[in-house]
């Protein structure tokens, strides 16, 4: 029982990070119908930006708790802004010029962009793994039995609270603000949206910016929680998050979050009860099984063709 609860906590934490990245995939797919394969790299960039800012601010040497909290908030904001610029630039350079082109063209540039970003970081930051000492430490022991403690770390609490908060905020933006309405309108009929005076290009850019910002939050959390990053983490995280988006139903915001949680949980439980080596196999197998029975994912709307 204790073991189970501990795995549940770990799974939800991992799942939250996947969910945050998955939203970027799902929102971009919703509005322009393409998979932004460079999104995992955007996540990876944000971890490096965060590491650089943490080092520059000298957070590791700080002793006052209030100062550390303030500095970490600053890291989060700087990482979100700079990552948003990267996200915006990728769209501007690699996707917008191909908007009128055939469907596969932006998919190919997306893969190209992904390779470019990976190599850029590898060259400028080196290929070695970058470690970071834990900054947020401490936590609570929820229960204890026969020497096995169920631990809930402060970092895990922060991750889950931040994820829930951001999910709520973004759902409200999509549902209630003019920007969200414009995004949903562009999703359904870009040409008509343009004829109603909506600047479609700007709306698409803002979608990439929003996705990149959420990926940046995930990146900062990932760095603080796991403490090791390298230029290649974007690939695995990206594939997992993409899987989460598809599992939840691509195009659906709550679906992305649910998919992220499920992938996180499946992975964690599989590693805990079966074997760590096969955790990815388990996650992808579940994806395959779900897609056989629910081709549009768990929360995706099936496309009904009116005749």
């Amino acid at each position: 029982m204790e073991y189970f609860v501990q795995q549940l906590i770990n799974g939800i934490t991992t799942g939250s990070i996947y969910g945050l990245i998955a939203i970027g995939y799902t929102m971009v797919y919703g509005i322009i119908g393409m998979i932004n394969f460079a999104h995992g790299e955007i996540f990876m960039l944000s971890t490096f930006i965060a590491l650089i800012v943490i080092t520059a601010l000298g957070i590791l040497g700080m002793s006052s708790v209030a100062l550390i909290i303030f500095a970490l908030l600053l890291v989060l904001v700087v990482a979100m802004v700079l990552t948003a610029v990267w996200g915006w630039a990728v769209e501007r350079i690699a996707y917008r010029p191909l908007r009128g082109s055939f469907r596969l063209a932006p998919l190919i540039t997306a893969i190209g962009m992904s390779i470019v970003l990976q190599n850029f970081v590898q060259i400028t930051q080196g290929a070695r793994v970058k470690p970071l000492q834990p900054i947020v430490s401490g936590g609570y022991t929820l229960m204890e039995k026969d020497g096995f403690q169920v631990a809930l770390s402060n970092m895990q609490i922060i991750i889950v609270v931040l994820t829930v908060g951001l999910m709520t905020a973004f759902s409200l933006i999509i549902a209630r603000t003019p920007l969200g309405r414009a995004q949903r309108a562009c999703e359904q009929d870009r040409r008509m949206a343009s004829l109603l005076g909506i600047n479609v290009d700007r709306t698409i850019s803002l979608t990439f910016v929003m996705g990149a910002m959420l990926a940046a939050v995930a990146g900062v959390m990932y760095l603080l929680n796991y403490g090791v990053i390298d230029f290649y983490i974007g690939f695995v995280a990206g594939v997992k998050a993409f899987t989460a988006a598809v599992l939840g139903g691509i195009g659906s915001l709550p679906g992305a979050m649910l998919g992220g949680l499920l992938i996180g949980l499946i992975e964690t439980f599989w590693s805990a009860y079966f074997s760590v080596e096969y955790k990815d196999v388990a996650a992808f197998s579940i994806l395959a099984i779900v897609l056989i029975f629910l081709p549009s994912g768990l929360l995706g709307k099936p496309e009904v063709e009116k005749v």
Binding site: I173, L179, R181, A193, G197, I198
Partner: peptide
Amino acid sequence: FGGMTVLENLMVAQHNELMKASAWTIGG
């Protein structure tokens, strides 16, 4: 926009003024 409500269809048409008034979403 079939998936949006009747009212939202009319609100989308007034996007530009609302976008400005919402200070590009932040104020909204």
